[in-house]
Simulated assay, not measured.
Amino acid sequence: MNADAPKMPRTIAEYLEQLRAALRGADPALIQDALYDAEEHLRAELAERPGHNEAEMLAKVVGSYGAPEEVADIYRDQEVKTQRALAPPRRPRPKQRSWASHFFGVAADPRTYGALFYMVLALATGIFYFTWATVGISLSFGLAVLIIGIPFIVLFFGSVRMLSLVEGRIVETMLGVRMPRRPTFSMRGMPFWQRIGAMFRDPRTWGTLFYMFLMLPLGIIYFTLVVTLLSTSLALAAAPVVKLVFDMIGFTDYGQCDGPAWVCGWVHFWSGWPGAFAACIVGIAMLFATLHIVRVLGYLHGQIARHFLVARE
């Protein structure tokens, strides 16, 4: 027998620790999903065998479910296949891309519009998260002296962890960043009060709370920046159409100027067709630059979400 081979786990806790060790170096979100699935499956198997202890159950189940190392390999392979399936289709790239294709190609990337929608949605989610966290913490302190205080605190922190999972799904769907698809595994074999204590000691619980507070200022910044840049760029890009409409209805007073000659020169230029087409070019360039900014912000926010919402090894 190979002395370096891991011993057969005799408890669910040992199985999960071996699975965690086998997945070391993998994406933390993948590790969280694998641990949750394994614990859920093993607990279900144990419940179906009331006359067996954990060691006997594991000896029978490992053959069908797999040893921790085998399960880890399966999850790694499945993750690669899933990421390939979920990734947006990629067009064959030329060997050398021009700066123009790189600059304007952002409009063909589906992730750009996912990030754009997330930036707009962030204001609403930020207000909701901030309100939920503020009211929940305030009521938790206020009710702590009453008999219903402890149940309320437990329910509130449980809701925070659930909202963490919901936000993770939103981030993964819109920003393309791998987030947990299962709750963090909870060692359901522990006594109730130990599980409650573990929830309060879990850094992810407090990280999620901080993230919920942080989402309000971030949501305001994202929404304001995106709306301002988009409205400005679209308004400039539509300058020829606006001028055409004004000319058709006979509204030409916008080009009048009584100031210095150099000021009137600029006014006449921008109120004429040359200025309208120049504004259109600036608006189009600004629109694509805005899409690049949105992509960068989406990537950065995805990293922020991973830092606060994903359980660490």
Rank of each mutant, 00 (worst) to 15 (best):
D4C: 10
P6W: 10
R10W: 02
A13S: 15
Q18V: 12
L19G: 09
R24V: 12
D33C: 05
R49W: 03
A55R: 13
A59T: 06
G66I: 13
E69Q: 03
P94M: 10
P94D: 13
H102F: 10
H102P: 00
A108F: 14
A108I: 08
L143V: 01
A144D: 04
I148K: 00
R161S: 15
L163W: 09
S164C: 10
G168M: 11
V171W: 01
P180Y: 07
F185W: 13
S186P: 06
R188M: 15
P191W: 07
F192E: 11
R195E: 13
F210E: 05
Y211A: 03
V226Q: 05
L229G: 09
S231P: 13
L234A: 06
A239G: 04
P240F: 02
Q256H: 13
C257Y: 10
D258C: 00
G259C: 06
G259Y: 12
G259D: 12
W270S: 09
W273D: 06
A279H: 03
C280E: 02
I281E: 00
V282R: 03
V282K: 01
G283T: 03
G283N: 01
G283H: 02
G283R: 04
A289C: 10
I293M: 12
I293G: 06
Q303M: 07
A305V: 00
